[in-house]
Nucleic acid binder design. Structure first.
Length: 219
DNA sequence: ATCCTGATTA
DNA sequence: TAATCCGGAT
């Protein structure tokens, strides 16, 4: 139990150090819940800058899922070309739209029908995996989940925390040792991504890292 | 374990 | 020129 207590403090400490350095992140970067979903699919293994270009081309459709659903797959694919994997991603967006249509393209109805098992429902959609499902849960439905993405895994591992191998393993560990608060989890994920992009990247830049004091790499 | 893919970076 | 980018399906 002693190990759990120390993990408990560690995740909160990380959050506080990151927040002190980077400040509020105002996530997810989107104007509407529907745009959150599109962005989350487009960003698969892709730089966000490439996603923004696609979102600009999709701008006329982002306020109207029904019209986007009527676009032929290859037309959609061309619009999102800059995001890479554009053929698969076009299929994934259309798969989501087919599912979304059942609820008249309204997230409110999704929540009413499913209440507790939105995650399972989302995971059945082609192209929506665990991370994307959690992004939707947190940033669309404001349900408190931890997004156990690559950045989080890398950052925690480098610090010296014993990180579970699976996605759900890490997700649950953090959820068990961090406040179950959608606003805090929103900010935590955003801060981890920002930190992963600026300091804790593939080859980390450890000078002036906000987590220096607790990182096992540095001592 | 491999494939999907364009744009930027090292 | 190769590696990398807020993954997921096969």
């Amino acid at each position: 139990m002693k190990a759990n207590e120390s993990i408990d403090e560690t995740y909160l400490n990380i959050y506080e150090l990151l927040y002190e350095r980077y400040g509020p992140q105002y996530w997810w970067p989107a104007d509407t819940p529907f745009e959150v979903v599109i962005g989350a699919i487009l960003v698969h293994h892709t730089n966000w800058a490439n996603v923004e270009r696609s979102l600009e081309k999709l701008a006329p459709y982002l306020s109207d899922p029904e019209t986007l659903a009527r676009l032929p797959e290859e037309t959609l694919a061309k619009l999102i070309r800059s995001s890479g994997f554009y053929r698969v991603k076009a299929k994934r967006i259309r798969a989501f739209l087919r599912w979304f249509q059942q609820y008249d393209y309204e997230f409110q109805r999704v929540k009413k029908v499913h209440q507790e098992n939105i995650r399972e429902e989302l995971l059945q959609i082609y192209g929506i995996g665990q991370e994307t499902a959690d992004v939707i849960l947190l940033y669309v439905f404001h349900i408190p989940v931890f997004i156990a993405d690559r950045y989080a895994r890398t950052i925690f591992q480098r610090i010296g925390i014993h990180v579970p191998r699976t996605y759900d393993g890490l997700r649950k560990q953090v959820e068990n040792h961090f406040p179950k608060d959608a606003n805090l989890l929103n900010e935590f994920h955003a801060l981890l991504v920002t930190h992963g992009k600026t300091y804790c990247k593939k080859t980390p830049i450890c000078d002036y890292c906000p987590l220096r004091t607790m990182c096992s790499r540095l001592v």
